[in-house]
Design a protein around this nucleic acid. Structure first.
Lengths: 149, 149
DNA sequence: TATTGTTATACTCTATAACTATA
DNA sequence: TATAGTTATAGAGTATAACAATA
């Protein structure tokens, strides 16, 4: 067993440029579909669960509740989601994607993942599978677990 | 061959929370060693190549040349790097890490990667190897290749 | 009094554009 | 005139705190 492994770069240092480039690649797609980055993130988060309170929604996407308000306003104005007062607690507003919102979100995702798939073709089938599986697992961890409590 | 694969999340959407948590995990380590995030990035970039012009250095780490000046000032004040005028072109300043700078950088990296290794232990040896290899490959690609020209 | 959504304020980053000194 | 480094300004993004309505 070797005492020293070959040195590797930090995970964050490797992920950073990849993340930056992936986001840059999304911009023209989003613009073509008339969506902001946060708008897309919100629609994605709502796609599965049809109702949600705004604060909970904000936490899911790692944002402050005050930060998503403008985003929700825009999406609602564009007919991509609806906000209705919760009859059981009139302080809260139930947020739901509209059919059009779901369509738009899916269309954007198809375009984005088309580019990502092109990128992934440079990997072997086994590497692709392992990479996506590991990424899925690690991204699902709570931040505290990644930071080490 | 199935017509539809199981839907997956976007790469960027999976990477984002991971990146956020990894950076958060680095903060206490950096603070303990008296380094800023950008200071650490700069030292890392200089570790291999001892001399470099500031503009080139900035480009390597994906920053604007004006953005790293305060960072270089701090590092120099702390004795972690030296700037000397290039005698062949007195406009340019040659940047080199000091021995102390190299030590500091290595010490930080050991702490950071210790936490990362803890995280990676949840992967099988094969997954760990594949994940790091793919990440190394993808992070080395030019941004234009990731964006699809 | 506490909580939801909202608005307002301040703070951090970052990009852009002037400025200097050399070439 | 053009370039390397620097400084100054302005803009975007974000977090925090105050606010109104409801519980």
């Amino acid at each position: 067993m070797p005492i020293m492994d070959a040195p590797r770069r930090d995970l964050a240092a490797m992920i950073a440029p990849l993340q930056r480039a992936l986001i840059a690649a999304e911009q023209p797609v989003l613009r073509a579909h008339g969506l902001s980055m946060w708008g897309y993130v919100v629609l994605n988060a709502l796609d599965g669960q049809p109702v949600r309170t705004q604060a909970a929604l904000a936490e899911v996407i790692g944002a402050d509740k005050s930060r998503i308000i403008g985003v929700l306003d825009e999406l609602e104005a564009g007919g991509l989601l609806q906000r209705t007062r919760d009859p059981e607690d009139r302080r809260a507003r139930l947020v739901a994607v509209t059919e059009e919102g779901r369509r738009r979100c899916r269309a954007v995702q198809v375009d984005i993942q088309r580019n990502e798939e092109r990128l992934l073709t440079r990997l072997s089938a086994a590497d692709r599978e392992a990479f996506l599986r590991v990424l899925t697992e690690l991204s699902a961890l709570p931040a505290s677990e990644i930071a080490g409590e």
